[in-house]
Design a protein around this nucleic acid. Structure first.
Lengths: 194, 194
DNA sequence: CGAACCATGTAATTGGTTACATGATTGT
DNA sequence: ACAATCATGTAACCAATTACATGGTTCG
């Protein structure tokens, strides 16, 4: 699995707490990876026993203490090893497509609502990617002194944008099809006749 | 989660064993949902205690016994209830994109190999979808007497095709970018100078 | 005679989410 | 006073994969 390796990659830029890492997930790579806080804390603990990272508690003056993790040499090595492994092919699980597959069993009106909600979700993502995320990439590439990395970050953003556009187009295509083909002659839907 | 509901939907067409259901997954909806056999067996057992399905052991003459599940009224009701719920938005986890994000840390040559492998995977899927799956849809719509469902099945297939094309185009775009921009002036890659 | 297919499952482990618990600081 | 943010985590649960175990049939 990739969570420990995603964490290694982020800690590599600079030492961080679990809380920091959650934030980084949220405003940088959340559109192709995310993790809940408890999951992150648990994974960090496992990584420490593996010897990939070490922690150091910084007493917070006034603020809560910070348990800051940094990479060990073993962690560095493991991260590079993982990077060089060929990519895993994802096995997608899309409940929405399961609903589409069985959509005959529901009123056409309801199915349209589903499609519109899905479309709206991806339209929202697309807007976010094109506005916010592009800006965040610039910001981070300065903060982490990683301007050479930025082109790869933009590549992942480009993936997100293409994905969102694809889904939006598919939704439009599906909605069009329903308009013309699936409407019963009398204009009422299949499950609420009369 | 959707596995029990995907199973309800399939059993609804006709009673089936866990083994049957695994096969149906494999050659119909595997590109947006899949499940391993043990997972299916366990889920079927849970669904039976919930009262959504009932089993009936058909002694196999010569062959192994078949434990055939069919829908109850409660199962039918639950399935339709689930269908009418608004779709869940997926939280994708794409280890490949994590590698892309950190790709600065690996030799360009290696990164290209990753991209080419990913591209090949989706090119393979695309071919499969366009040839095999389209045929399977026809075949199943006859076998299950479900010609009215076929247009929805085609919609999911269309999604798979668009997804595959999107990834292929993105890979090509990324590879192009590497050719022109990321090659060091001397033509050697960043991690193996000299 | 061996490989592939039919058909069942259990046990163990990993990966991920949700609910719960604590306590200080900052801003409205 | 109240909510939000910073910061830690534990416990319980659900979802999914992998390894293990069994045994008959059919086809080459």
């Amino acid at each position: 699995m990739s969570l420990p390796h995603a964490l290694l990659g982020l800690i590599r830029y600079r030492p961080a707490t679990g809380y920091d890492l959650k934030n980084t997930f949220e405003n940088s790579i959340h559109f192709f990876w995310n993790a809940a806080l408890p999951h992150i804390y648990r994974t960090l603990k496992q990584m420490e026993t593996q010897g990939w990272i070490v922690s150091n508690v910084e007493p917070g003056e006034g603020k809560p203490d910070r348990k800051v993790y940094r990479l060990t040499e073993a962690g560095e090595k493991e991260f590079l090893r993982w990077l060089s492994q060929p990519p895993e092919n994802p096995e997608p699980r899309l409940p929405m497509l399961v609903k589409v597959f069985f959509a005959r069993q529901m009123p056409v009106r309801e199915f349209k609502e589903h499609l519109e909600k899905w479309r709206a979700h991806y339209a929202g993502l697309l807007e976010k990617y094109e506005k916010e995320v592009a800006a965040v990439i610039e910001q981070y590439s300065l903060r982490y002194d990683a301007s050479e990395d930025a082109c790869y970050w933009r590549l992942t953003l480009d993936y997100g944008i293409r994905q969102a556009k694809m889904v939006i187009e598919w939704c439009d295509h599906a909605l069009e099809g329903l308009q013309t083909a699936a409407t019963p002659p009398n204009g009422l839907d299949a499950h609420n006749p009369g």
